[in-house]
Design a protein around this nucleic acid. Structure first.
Length: 214
DNA sequence: GGCAGTGAGGTTCCGTATAT
DNA sequence: ATATACGGAACCTCACTGCC
């Protein structure tokens, strides 16, 4: 995978983040994770040496607050940032496009998973056995899954800053759901009715995901 | 109350890959 | 050749918990 930041671009972006507000190193890492929806997660070994280098060059300074090194921009740093505003605008533009690409990839990934599972369910429906209610994928499982999805929305769904967590939680729940349906199907436990329940749960989740990623 | 164990937050060091 | 981006391991500090 190619680096997210080009040569010297991370340095410039760090100056920009510190101009917004003084921050400690860990906060900078978290902020970058959030702005890249969790896809770009710089390691401490990337950020701290950069901050130290900026300080050596006199572009930032730090003070220790509650045991943490809180970095802020110096006049020299502010001057450099303002001298490179054009470059910064280009950088922000390309970062915005990167984040949009990431969102598109997530959306396509979800869509493709949902599509393939629906195809499997359709195929399974053709081979479905006569209902055996003692073994089938029952309404209580449908209810459990609806509650699981609802919990994800209520935990992460409404706040844009929670996108990374939402993506991770969605991926996890979707994988679990797919695994269970496949297991039930291979065990021959799916009736026509339970297949319809699976599809209904999946369609509801799919609609909600589309809304969320819009 | 004192101690050890544990986990999270925060930092440093070092090595590798890549761009200039 | 040098500077920079990046990742990972190791370390330190602190708060919390359980046990004696």
């Amino acid at each position: 995978m190619s680096p997210v930041f080009g040569h010297g671009r991370l340095r410039l972006y760090l100056l920009k983040l510190l101009e917004e507000s003084p921050r400690h190193g860990y906060e900078v890492i978290r902020l970058l994770q959030d702005r890249f929806l969790g896809v770009y997660s710089p390691s401490p070994g990337t950020i701290y040496p950069r901050l130290a280098r900026l300080e050596e060059e006199g572009l930032v300074t730090h003070e220790v607050i509650d045991g943490k090194k809180v970095f802020s921009l110096t006049d020299k740093g502010r001057a450099e940032l303002h001298a490179r505003l054009d470059e910064l605008a280009d950088l922000e533009q390309s970062l915005t496009e990167s984040v949009q690409d990431i969102a598109r990839e997530v959306k396509e990934d979800v869509r493709s998973t949902v599509r393939s599972l629906r195809e499997e369910l359709t195929q399974a429906a053709k081979d479905v056995r006569p209902p055996d209610l003692s073994r089938s994928w029952t309404h209580w499982q449908e209810r459990d899954w609806r509650q699981t999805w609802a919990r994800v929305w209520s935990t992460f769904g409404d706040a844009p800053e929670n996108r990374a967590e939402l993506d991770a939680a969605l991926g996890e729940v979707l994988a679990d759901f797919v695994a269970q349906v496949r297991q039930e199907a291979s065990a021959g436990n799916l009736t026509r009715q339970s297949l319809e329940q699976c599809r209904a749960v999946l369609d509801d989740a799919s609609t909600k995901i589309r809304d969320q990623l819009r």
